[in-house]
């Protein structure tokens, strides 16, 4: 007999298809799991409106529980924020070479124009603070592209959102 806690644990361990070191729980998108007999309802909240990984995540959640009838519900409100990312998730991101979101503040930075600069990040490769933002948009909706001036390596930053 599989307990509801085991059901939840199996779902929580499903990796993100774009950043496979993170699980859906690390990302903070797994909002609720209810188990009624063989019927499981999973509630997830998308990171970005157009995130193409959401459909694959839904399929992966269903595949994680082949013996159950899994219903995946997508709920938009309250809107996902990087504040929901777990400490384990932040640590894994950094080890993977992606600078994790900043802890302070929530949501994107207001219009900065040329006057203000975005606060520097720590390079996940060499630990230097001498870094610069190259582009606010990168390989996926949730990341921006940075460069380290010390070790010369480019790196991704999981945006504060």
């Amino acid at each position: 007999m599989v307990t509801p806690a085991q059901v939840r644990a199996r779902l929580a361990a499903v990796p993100d298809p774009e950043i496979p070191v993170l699980t859906v729980e690390d990302l903070g998108i797994l909002r609720d799991v209810t188990v009624e007999g063989r019927h499981v309802t999973v509630t997830i909240t998308p990171t970005y409106s157009g995130c193409p990984a959401m459909e694959e995540i839904g399929a992966d959640l269903r595949a994680a529980l082949p013996d159950f009838e899994v219903e995946v519900r997508t709920v938009l409100a309250p809107a996902w924020t990087t504040a929901w990312m777990t400490d384990a998730g932040r640590r894994k991101l950094e080890e993977y070479g992606i600078a994790p979101p900043r802890r302070t503040g929530s949501g994107p930075v207001a219009v900065t124009l040329s006057a203000a600069k975005v606060a520097a990040l720590t390079c996940p490769q060499c630990g230097s603070r001498d870094t610069e933002e190259l582009s606010r948009f990168a390989s996926t909706a949730c990341k921006s592209l940075w460069r380290c001036r010390s070790c010369r390596e480019p790196f991704d930053h999981f945006k504060d959102h």
Partner: peptide, 28 residues
Amino acid sequence: DPVLAGVAGKAVKEATYHLDHASAWVVR
């Protein structure tokens, strides 16, 4: 309206990035 509120709560963060990006380019 719960649908509009839910969609807008996400979209406002994204539109802020878009505005920032377009503003920076128009200035440049």
